[in-house]
Computed example of a mutant assay.
Amino acid sequence: MPFSSLGLSAALLNALADQNFTSPTPIQEAAIPAILNKKDVLGIAKTGSGKTASYVLPLLMNAQRWAGIKNRHANVLVLVPTRELAEQVKEVFRTFSKALPNPVKTLAVYGGVSINPQMMALQGVHILVATPGRLLELLDANAVHLSGIETLVLDEADKMLNLGFKEEVDKILGLLPVQRQNILFSATLSKDLEHIQQLVLQAPVVIKIEEEETSLDLINQLAYIVAPERKGPFLRYLIKHHNMKQVLVFASSVQLVEAIVNKLRKNNIAARAIHSKKSQGNRTDSLTDFKSGKLRVLVATDLMARGIDINFLPYVINYELPRSPKDYIHRIGRTGRAEAVGEAISLISLDELHHFEVIQKKMGKQVSIIDGATIII
């Protein structure tokens, strides 16, 4: 099915062609017509399925009736869990908005940066992309009002709830007009999400894109048993010995991420950290340089994983294992995309071996394990 059959305008179809979008993904094929028809939508689909465009395109179409009007309050509210996702969603809106005859102003607001410039930029905004905490700060300052919201989007709702935003989201929902269109996207359907779903959605169009069982087939997985004190030197050995470029390394804490980066730099390996303590500008610059290939190694916490979306990422290394098998799959799922084979390597201490066996059982795949002590570095 081509995009032209979904009810989008000629201007948006031309913009899609310019961006080399040839045909809609399953989530886009189902969601775009429903959103155009002002239906509530519940979409369950993994990251990387094309869900952002599936609501951006129809919302921009619907926005044309009030675009160009000097409105006092936003018409569309998109709630997201992280600053990185807020920026990504804003850019998608802006990219396609440029093709429209009537301008649609989009603004992303989030914490970690000064609130004053965001307050000043709110004038005339049609589409507001926000993290819950910063939105509540703006509401408390009487800088923004939600009375004009016609459409609410909860993007990556499962992540939002996992990060502890349930109370904030409930408070925001209580401030919105009762009559509105609601769009909820999530990678999973948890009990907490069922609560939000029942609270928000009215007779929704339910779209569930099943995750393919073969989604890990393009990822070559390998694990090394390495003593904790040897993981740093072993990581540096792997990167240098195999001449790795564009290496995404995951660690559990901000402190460990910084320590890994410092050691890599001292050994002449270009590396940067990306985590919640970094400024938005720093995080954006690091991610841009990493995507373009200018940066050799990016070391990240799990919180940042959903903001890292690269089609041809060759390497993911788990410096230590995540707490859950789902997080492990999400980590290594950054590679092996767009039909390009990727490498996922895990450095495992003996204490982590049992946990890794659980991860293998959950994902239904056996991973070759090598004793790192036999390798001279």
Results as ranks from 00 to 15, higher is better:
T106D: 14
P2V: 07
Q197P: 01
P24N: 12
V178K: 14
Q88L: 09
N182W: 00
V56T: 11
L189S: 01
L193A: 07
R337G: 08
I44P: 02
R236N: 14
S54Y: 02
D158M: 03
P58Y: 06
G336D: 07
I345R: 05
A271V: 10
V206Q: 13
V226R: 02
S4N: 15
S349N: 13
K159T: 08
V125Q: 05
L122G: 03
T288W: 10
L350W: 14
I225T: 15
R134P: 00
I369H: 11
G174C: 06
T335Q: 13
K90G: 11
F21H: 13
Y110M: 09
S215W: 01
P177L: 10
T374N: 13
K171P: 00
Q28C: 09
K51R: 11
D285G: 08
G111D: 04
L152A: 02
L313D: 08
E84R: 06
V89E: 07
V80F: 01
K191D: 15
Y224T: 08
T82L: 08
I32M: 05
T288M: 11
A63S: 14
L287W: 09
G7W: 02
K278F: 09
Q118S: 10
I44F: 04
L189Y: 12
L107P: 00
E213Q: 12
L60C: 07
A203S: 14
R65L: 10
L79S: 04
A338N: 12
R296T: 11
L184D: 03
R134T: 02
K166P: 03
E91K: 12
L128V: 00
N282S: 13
I359F: 10
I348T: 03
T301P: 08
S286Y: 07
N75P: 00
N318A: 09
I44K: 09
L347F: 13
I183N: 09
R83F: 12
S253G: 08
A300G: 05
K208T: 15
N318P: 01
S324L: 05
E84N: 09
L59I: 06
